Computed example of a mutant assay.
Amino acid sequence: MAEATREALPLVDATGAHFIIVEGRFYDSLNDQLIAGAVAAFAASGATSEVVTVPGALEIPVAIEILRQQAESGRRKADGFVALGVVIRGETTHYEIVSNESARELIALATRHRLAFGNGILTVENMAQAEARANPSRGDKGGDAARAALALYALKRSA
């Protein structure tokens, strides 16, 4: 089945904003591609970004909460967050646990704290699907996650 296409989101002017990309580092080359897409999207909007690395997708919500608290206390700048990682189905139920629990907690965290947030954790069946989605010149899911965070950042600023 072909992936649906959609119109690109309008470019957000986020000059002076700073976003934190939290990656669950498991598949190095895939994560590098996701990060490249996200960094490029932030740069195109005038925002800066930094990458914080944790071991896997389950640690991402915990890291974002820690970073959010640091930003709230003034110890770190963060206007929004992006979660990046790759979860590929294996032979056990671990895939379901990681996929469902990381997504559930990320949405709860973003909603509870009204975060400008984008979720770019790929949940796929195989490596070919992951490669197609991670590559900035093909699926650009890292860039999509950054653009989602930028759209929510713009919405927060307009409120």
Rank of each mutant, 00 (worst) to 15 (best):
F19S: 06
V22E: 00
L11Y: 05
A159M: 14
G85R: 01
L11V: 09
A40E: 08
V39A: 15
N126E: 04
Y27A: 07
Y95C: 07
V39Y: 11
R157K: 15
Q69I: 07
R89V: 12
Y153E: 02
S158V: 05
H94A: 13
H18L: 12
V124Y: 02
R157M: 13
G90D: 03
A151P: 04
Y27L: 12
V22D: 00
D140N: 15
L30H: 11
R114T: 12
V22G: 00
Q70I: 00
V39D: 14
G143Y: 03
A154E: 02
E105W: 06
R157L: 13
S137G: 07
A36E: 15
V62Y: 01
A8E: 05
I21R: 04
A134V: 08
G139S: 06
I35C: 13
T93W: 12
L115C: 03
G120C: 09
R25E: 07
F42A: 03
E65K: 15
R89D: 09
G80A: 14
A110Y: 10
R104G: 09
A43S: 10
L155D: 11
V52C: 09
G74P: 08
A110V: 01
G90W: 12
N119F: 05
Q129A: 06
S29L: 14
R104P: 09
A44I: 01
A78S: 10
H18E: 05
A83W: 03
G139Q: 02
A78R: 08
A44M: 01
R147D: 06
K156C: 02
L115F: 12
A43Y: 03
Q70R: 07
A83R: 02
I20T: 14
A132W: 10
L152K: 10
I21A: 02
A8S: 10
D144C: 12
G37C: 13
L150F: 03
V87A: 03
G37N: 08
R76Y: 03
D144Y: 09
K156G: 11
V82F: 11
V124H: 00
R75V: 13
T53I: 13
E7P: 10
A8L: 07
A83Y: 04
G85Q: 05
L155T: 05
N135D: 15
Q69Y: 10
R25K: 12
L67G: 05
G120P: 09
A71S: 08
A151W: 02
G143K: 07
L109Q: 13
T5C: 13
R6W: 05
T53F: 11
G120L: 08
